Computed example of a mutant assay.
Amino acid sequence: MSISNMTVFMPSVLTLIGIPGLESVQCWIGIPFCAMYLTAMIGNSLLLIIIVSERSLHEPMYMFLGMLGVTDIALATTIMPKMLGIFWFHVPEIYFDSCLLQMWLIHTFQCIESGILVAMALDRYVAIRYPLRHGAIFTHHLVTQIGAMVTVRAAILVAPCLVLIKCRLQFYHTTII
């Protein structure tokens, strides 16, 4: 009995099937996902508006909280449109490069979130350990630098995986995900 070689060389389009076995009810599954997405967008947007408009909230802790809100908005916006497109509009195709970009964005934003949480913990540690010097240590300039470094660190940590997927993995067993 011969087994045929079904490998695909560098596919240009991948097919996302959604949740296997529940294709008939995926339109209903998309409703709670959309509701959670809208709730997260409204909540994080209100948080950002309050932090920007209230001058007393221009402290490092609230600035980190605002960064976390922006990251949550970006992460959810990276994931949900394609997911709802599959669930509601039956658009299962995604270009390979778009899939890599989406994967890079998802992992980068998740890494940014963890970095911001570590920065928030450091901020609280300094506030507890050195309460009188906290304002002098955590200046707005330092908070901006920490946010930039967390972002750069996340992008650099995730990039090699995508380069390896693009350059080294050229043969795929299937194009259905």
Rank of each mutant, 00 (worst) to 15 (best):
C161S: 11
L105F: 12
M103K: 05
T39D: 08
A148H: 07
F9S: 04
G30N: 09
V91M: 13
S114R: 00
L164G: 03
H140R: 14
S98D: 15
L105R: 11
V150A: 10
E59G: 06
I49C: 14
V126D: 08
D123H: 09
N5F: 00
G85V: 01
P81M: 09
G85W: 01
I156P: 05
W28A: 02
T108W: 01
L22F: 11
M41E: 15
L16I: 13
C34H: 12
S114E: 04
I156E: 08
L157F: 14
H173P: 04
D97I: 03
T39K: 11
M63W: 00
C111I: 02
P60C: 10
M120Y: 11
D97F: 11
T144Y: 07
T174G: 03
I42T: 03
M1Q: 12
W88T: 00
H58M: 01
H90M: 05
I42C: 15
H141N: 04
M41R: 06
T78I: 14
T151E: 07
Y95N: 12
I106F: 13
L105E: 03
V152M: 09
P11Y: 08
K166P: 03
V118Q: 13
V152H: 01
L100K: 14
L16K: 07
E113N: 01
L100P: 04
C167L: 15
T174L: 02
A155M: 15
V8P: 01
S45R: 09
